[in-house]
């Protein structure tokens, strides 16, 4: 019998550290150019992506095809270069004939390190839920990513974004019974978005 990969705890801890550091740094830079007039303005983003999913545990099947993903974020500006919001997402793929879904919900933040530039850092945290037949997985999720706004008319923008979500420290359950502990879930999404700023 083949050995199976070990727990992904360290990988998630590293990702969380990177996320915190990136957000802290970006917030500092953004705060220097903050525009008080932008505060409180609504913004939203709807994105369509291709998602790669990796479920990590001793027994997990780690290979999956890419699948489509949708995300929607709605929030308000905390400053001219900083916006926060609530986000929800869904992704699906077929693995060995079984439909798998990854749901997500939580708080998102987008920060432009250089005011006036389209480049922004994406961060967030919340919940991730994996579903495949009777198998379920629910965990705290951290998100880190980057995006690039391309202005359209008025406040409309399009762009590309790349995000990575990492979850860990939760059990995989079959019909309510835990069957694997310390399971990790990683999702990488790359896609396009449309939004208003």
């Amino acid at each position: 019998m083949r050995p199976f990969p070990k727990s992904p705890h360290r990988r998630v801890a590293l990702a969380a550290g990177c996320l915190i550091a990136a957000l802290a740094g970006a917030s500092h830079v953004a705060a220097q150019g903050a525009d008080a007039d932008a505060e409180g303005r609504w913004w939203w983003t709807a994105s369509a992506s291709a998602q790669g999913t990796r479920l990590v545990c001793d027994l997990c099947d780690t290979s999956r095809d890419l699948g489509p993903a949708l995300d929607f974020v709605l929030g308000r500006y905390a400053g001219s270069a900083t916006r926060v919001g609530l986000e929800a997402g869904y992704a699906t793929t077929t693995n060995d004939g079984e439909r798998e879904s990854v749901w997500s919900a939580g708080i998102a933040a987008e920060i432009h390190p250089r005011p006036g530039s389209g480049l922004h850092v994406i961060g967030g945290f919340g919940w991730a839920g994996y579903r495949a037949a009777d198998f379920t997985y629910d965990a705290v999720r951290l998100r880190l990513g980057v995006g690039w706004d391309l202005p359209l008319a008025g406040s409309w923008v399009v762009g590309n974004r790349l995000t990575y979500d990492a979850s860990s420290f939760a059990s995989l359950q079959n019909d309510g019974t835990p069957v694997q502990e310390s399971v990790g879930l990683g999702t990488l999404r790359f896609g396009m978005y449309l939004g208003r700023r």
Binding site: M1, C60, D61, E98, A132, A133, N174, D175, V179
Partner: peptide
């Protein structure tokens, strides 16, 4: 040897279990 097993209802796509 190394017989690939079914796991639960649809679990073979989620988990890989092999048995001798």
């Amino acid at each position: 040897n190394d017989l690939v097993m079914n796991v639960g209802d649809g679990g073979s796509a989620v988990l890989q279990v092999q048995c001798d």
